[in-house]
């Protein structure tokens, strides 16, 4: 078992119910794509799996850690086994790429190593290997604010590769990348999960990316699970029903690369893909 959600609900302090009665289970090594319209609750679901938010109803077990995620040493240990690729790469601009990648193992390293690594990066080969897999090995000692939005996103992915987590969560990991790179990056994540027997859960905006690369598809709508099927059984009518609120066209990969900064990219891409 990799995770098991049982009747999980998540109601924000302002009364908005982001998730309602979610029951979802995954075995170790499964590769799941979350799809659904914007605001459906995909990010909230990933936040619960990543222990960022504790469910307000039901029970959540992640890896071998049960119930409420209270901040304890055990939770920190658990978190070092979960790697998250964020929608906008959470990396300080003034940090060097090598340090940003090595930060993936802060939860596993002893304190002296983390401290010393600020003065002199202690695992340069490791960082180089991870960066090599996202084609950025030449940027090892560059500073993050010298990279483009797409490159920075790949640094974020390299950090997760370096962390070697048992559960990989990805929240729209390729929304800032052009279609070719997006496909290559998704394949990389899938291959990484496969090679190490890790579980992968990715929310994706483009339906074609999801259906083409993931074995199991979970449709999310209005905070609930609309369907949970093998990729082969997800048909066009089902998808139209899922995206009913977003018009007639299904969101697929944008047909040309866009040059927007990552924060704004998501909204614009959403609109571009729907028109």
């Amino acid at each position: 078992m990799s995770f098991r959600l049982n009747g999980v609900g998540l109601t924000h302090a302002n009364g908005f119910a982001a998730l309602k009665d979610i029951t979802l289970k995954a075995e170790k090594g499964e590769r799941i794509a979350l799809i659904g319209p914007s605001g459906a609750g995909k990010t909230s679901l990933l936040s619960v799996l990543g222990t960022a938010l504790a469910p307000t109803a039901g029970t959540a077990e992640v890896l071998d850690f049960g119930q409420n995620f209270r901040l304890t040493v055990a939770l920190a240990k658990l978190r070092s086994r979960i790697g998250t690729v964020h929608q906008a790469p959470p990396i300080p601009g003034r940090q060097r790429v090598v340090t940003a990648v090595l930060a993936g193992k802060l939860g596993q390293w002893p304190a002296w190593k983390s401290l010393a690594s600020l003065l002199y990066p202690l695992d340069i080969p490791g960082a180089r290997t991870a960066l090599d897999r996202v084609d950025l090995a030449d940027k090892l000692f560059a500073r993050c604010d010298q990279l483009s939005g797409g490159q920075l996103q790949r640094v974020g992915i390299a950090r997760v590769l370096y962390q070697q987590p048992e559960l990989i969560l990805a929240d729209e990991p390729v929304s800032a990348l052009d279609p070719t790179l997006a496909l290559a990056t998704i394949r990389l994540l899938v291959a990484e999960a496969e090679a190490r027997g890790a579980t992968l859960v990715a929310s994706l905006h483009a339906v074609d990316l999801a259906l083409g690369n993931f074995s199991r598809i979970v449709g999310v709508r209005a905070g609930q699970i609309a369907f949970d099927l093998p990729a082969g059984e997800v048909g066009v009518p089902l998808l139209h029903e899922l995206y009913a609120s977003e018009g007639d066209e299904l969101p697929v990969q944008a047909h040309e690369p866009h040059f927007l900064p990552p924060a704004a990219a998501n909204d614009a891409a959403t609109r571009a893909a729907c028109c």
């Binding site: 998250t84 990396i91 802060l106």
Partner: peptide, 14 residues
């Protein structure tokens, strides 16, 4: 920006 520190805490960093 809170995101980088938050992300590291979620990856288990003290």
């Amino acid at each position: 920006p809170p995101a980088p520190g938050q992300a590291l805490r979620l990856a288990g960093a003290p």
